[in-house]
Computed example of a mutant assay.
Amino acid sequence: MKIRRIKITTIFAVAVVLLVLLLAFFPSIFTTYDPLQMDMMNSLKGPSSLHWLGTDEYGRDLWSRIVYGARPSIAVGFGAATLAALIGIPMGLAAGYFGKIADNVIMRIMDACSAFPSFLLAILIITIMDPSTLSLILTISIVNIPAFARIVRSNVLSLKKREFVEAARAFGAKKRYVMFRTILPNCISSITVEYSLVAATAILMEAGMSFLGLGIQPPTPSWGSMLSYANQYLNHSITYIMVPTCTIFIVVLCVNLLGDALRDWLDPMKMK
């Protein structure tokens, strides 16, 4: 088998994603300031030895708020991707395997969900519920269910006529066994790649919702709400708005790079 070299961008993406996960799970290890601690005498200060990334309008340490803001962003991003996968994968399996009426009904529902721009649909749903981490996860997962359903359905349509599937049926395997034990494992590579891309989209959507005031509510730190507040102080501190902007950009970029790396790594044509 050909030994593949790992790209520098892939190493960087993995390192950043692992770092963000550590920040989300163990924020107190990486910070010395309480993210809610105010110090009006040091508001809107630039980076210094005391505050690595500066302070906000209330004198709160930006590094601490970035670190503690990683938890809701990661929770929403990967939580929404996981829930969307748990709902979308069985729907895609059923649509592709049974076909006919099941396929038409399920895919028309997916088409209806995709008829609205995803961000506008998310805003519509979140306005019905109270803004919270759980409601964001539910909202963003609903928007991304069609992505998993479609990719699984397309895989099932190409796999269900393969010899190993016909052999499982010939040995008397039940439909549930064929779907979940024979076909589904062969869809894992596509699902894994889609999961990483949906997680990146969910993190970006969470930031956008929080920017509009429909996401994580104060005083809980959130990258999107930090960006919203920083927008009001552009003339006073450029560092304030650059910190959450660069954080969102780097994290979403690295999750997407990780998804691209997984696509290349799991591509059967490149394994030869």
Rank of each mutant, 00 (worst) to 15 (best):
L121H: 04
V105F: 13
V143N: 12
R153V: 02
F116Q: 01
D260K: 04
L159N: 01
E166C: 07
L266Q: 04
L22S: 12
H236L: 13
V17P: 03
S189G: 15
V252S: 09
V178G: 12
L253C: 09
P146Y: 08
R263Y: 02
D264Q: 03
S158K: 11
A70Y: 03
I238D: 00
L93C: 08
T139L: 05
I183Y: 06
S73E: 11
S73T: 14
Y33F: 15
N256P: 02
F78G: 05
P35K: 07
T247D: 10
M38K: 13
A85K: 05
I145N: 10
C187V: 05
L121D: 07
N186G: 06
N155S: 01
R153S: 03
M107F: 06
F164N: 07
L136Q: 12
D39F: 05
I74D: 01
M269R: 15
F78W: 03
F98Y: 15
G224P: 06
S48Q: 12
L212S: 00
T182F: 04
I248S: 11
P218A: 08
I250W: 02
V20Y: 07
F12N: 01
K2I: 14
F249E: 10
D39T: 07
G88F: 01
K45D: 00
L134G: 13
V105A: 09
T239G: 00
M110C: 12
A94L: 15
G213P: 03
G79I: 04
N235R: 14
N155V: 00
R176W: 11
K160M: 04
I106F: 06
S48E: 14
E194W: 05
F180N: 11
P218T: 08
I250V: 15
I125C: 08
Y68I: 05
S228M: 04
L227S: 11
G224C: 07
P131G: 06
N144C: 14
L157D: 02
G213V: 03
P268W: 02
A70L: 02
E57N: 14
T192N: 11
A173Y: 11
L234A: 10
A81K: 06
V251A: 12
R65C: 09
P219E: 13
E57D: 14
A112M: 15
G215K: 09
S190T: 14
C187A: 07
R4N: 10
A102P: 04
M40Y: 12
T239I: 00
A112V: 15
I250K: 02
I248Y: 10
G88Y: 02
L124G: 14
V193P: 09
L121S: 09
P218V: 06
C246M: 15
I241W: 05
V143A: 13
C246I: 14
V152K: 00
G46P: 09
K175A: 12
